[in-house]
Structure formats: structure tokens, C-alpha cells
Amino acid sequence: MKTQTAHAGTVAPAGVAARPRRGRIRGSHHTHRTTVRWLLAPAVIFLLVWMLVPLAMTFYYSFENYNLMMPMDRGFAGILNYQLLFDDPIFWAALGNTLVLVFFSLILTVGFGLALALLFNRTFPLRGVARTLAVAPFFVMPVVAGLIWKNMLMHPVYGLFAWAFRSLGLEPIDWLAQYPMSSVVIMITWMWTPFALLVLLTGLQSLPEDQLEAVRLDGANRWQEFRYIVLPHLGQVIYVVLMLESIFFLTSFAEIYTTTSGGPGTATTNLPYYIYLNAFFQYDIGTSSAGAIAAVVLANVFAIFLIRFVSGNLNAGANR
């Protein structure tokens, strides 16, 4: 790694030296450029080594015959791993579960988040305290959240919900066994509604006050105010929340690991959990790498929109 760094540092500046520079700071001399390159290199190299090289290796493994139980039996597998993956009904179940989880969690968190943001954007006594209590779940580590819900709330015998059902003379529900996916979505909604709330509230607070004043003077009612002023203003913010949350929800793992372990059966096995099972219990590096590539492709579908947005944001910043 050291030699590569030195290589990049000494050779590259010569390559750009001839080109005119678009630097913001004029009159800085040649040494600056070399220094700047050195300043940037460690972070870039770190991300290359820890993220891009492993990603490339995953891609490579996905075309390899590679099972940890049969270390002698390695070699190029062509598209066999992908064929195995696409022939595996559990893969399709996991893909379906992933999409169901993402879809419903998105709808619920953004819906509740928006409602709560409007609720907490009013002035009322103790607003700070109430808002603080409402956003607390977001700061709780996912494993703790999962275990609170699984044990203390949803447990079929000792859980609070079971007690409530018994008190009402109803049969307690074994949530994680009877409604596994709904239970996971409920937990994720509890954890992530505060995120949507926080971001949307921040968005609401930058609402142009004069526009609101104007429509009020025009006699707009509350719905019209919301529909024509608040919602368009929030549109971009909602978009950001949707994109970010979808990437987080696509990679949900701890919530499932601590509660349902992907079950019963494959009812809550999502793509990350499926890859984990394949890699750590089947020792099948090849097929699980193919699964991992599928997960990366899926995440990219969402990420492309977000990255486009981030770079658009970048240019907006540059024009300041």
C-alpha cells in the first residue's frame, strides 16, 4: 500500500501540471497542488481498501466455486452461482420480504413522521419536552429496540400486550409467530418515525413565513395552506427522507437478528439475513457473494437517485 501511495503522489501531479486550474484560490504556487494531493490521498485510499476492494472481491467470488467446507474444490464457476441463486425459492422469498419491509416501513414512517412534524411544529406548553420524548427511539441502538419489543411488549405470555389482551378477555397474540412481518415493520416504524419527524420538522421550520402570511390574508383554510404552501415546500425534504430510509431499510439486519431470526420459516428473512445464513451456515461463499451482488444492485437503484440529488446539492452550494 505504501508504495502505491508514493507512486500516485509523485506521478500524478506531473500529469495535471499542464492543464489550467480552476482553483478557487488564486496565486497559490505549484507546491500547493502536491500538498493537496497528499491531503486527499489517505481518505481516498482508506475507502478504496475498506470498501471498493472488498466489493470487487465479492464480485469476483460470485463467479467462483468456493465453499469453505470444500476448500480444495475451487475454480471459475461462470454464472453457476447466479443460476443457483435464481433457482433458490428462498432468495425470491427474501427479495419479496425485503421489498415488503421497505415499502410498508416507508409509508408508515413518512406518514406518521409528517403528521407528528405538523403536530410538533405548533407552539404549546412543554413542546420541547414532548418533542424530546417523541424522538428518543431514534437514538436507541437497534438491538435494544428489538429486544424491548420482542420481550417486554410482544412476548406471548409475559409481554405487556399479552396482559392487555387477557385483561380485555381476549386470547393473547403471539405477535412474532403469528404476524412476523407486521411485527418487524411495527418495530422499524417505532425506531424510524422519529428520524422522519426530525428531518421534516427541520424542513417545516425553514418554511417561508411571508408566503404563509400571504395565503392567510387571502383567506386560505388550513387544508389549502397545507396543500399549496407546506407540502410543495416539504416535497424535497420528503424525497430525501424516502431515499435515505429506503437505503437503511434495505439493509435492516439487527432488528431481524434479535427478534424473529428470519422466521418463522422464511417469513422475515430479508436479503441481508439470507446472505448471512448462506455465508455463515452453508459456508457457501460463491452463492452468498452472488446474493450480496444482488443486494448491492438493489441498493444502487435507490442510491442513484440520492447520489444525483447530493451532487445537485453540491452544485447549488458551489454557486453560493
Binding site: 480552476r22 478557487r24 481516498v44 475507502l47 475498506w50 470498501m51 450480496a292 443486494a295
Partner: peptide
């Protein structure tokens, strides 16, 4: 403070690595 032609690309590239799901790099890292 010293942006050049490739700065925007570098920055967006760095941000985009955040969107690689952890499972995508899990097996080689392990």
C-alpha cells in the same frame, strides 16, 4: 479550499461508498 476538476467527482464518489450495503462487502472482509 483547493478544488480542482476532479473534486466534485471525488466528493460524490466518497459519499456514494456509504450506499454500498454492508452485506456487499461482508464476505471478503470476513
Amino acid at each position: 479550499f483547493y478544488p480542482n476538476k476532479r473534486t466534485d467527482f471525488t466528493l460524490v464518489w466518497m459519499v456514494s461508498t456509504k450506499f454500498i450495503p454492508a452485506v456487499g462487502v461482508l464476505i471478503p472482509i470476513f
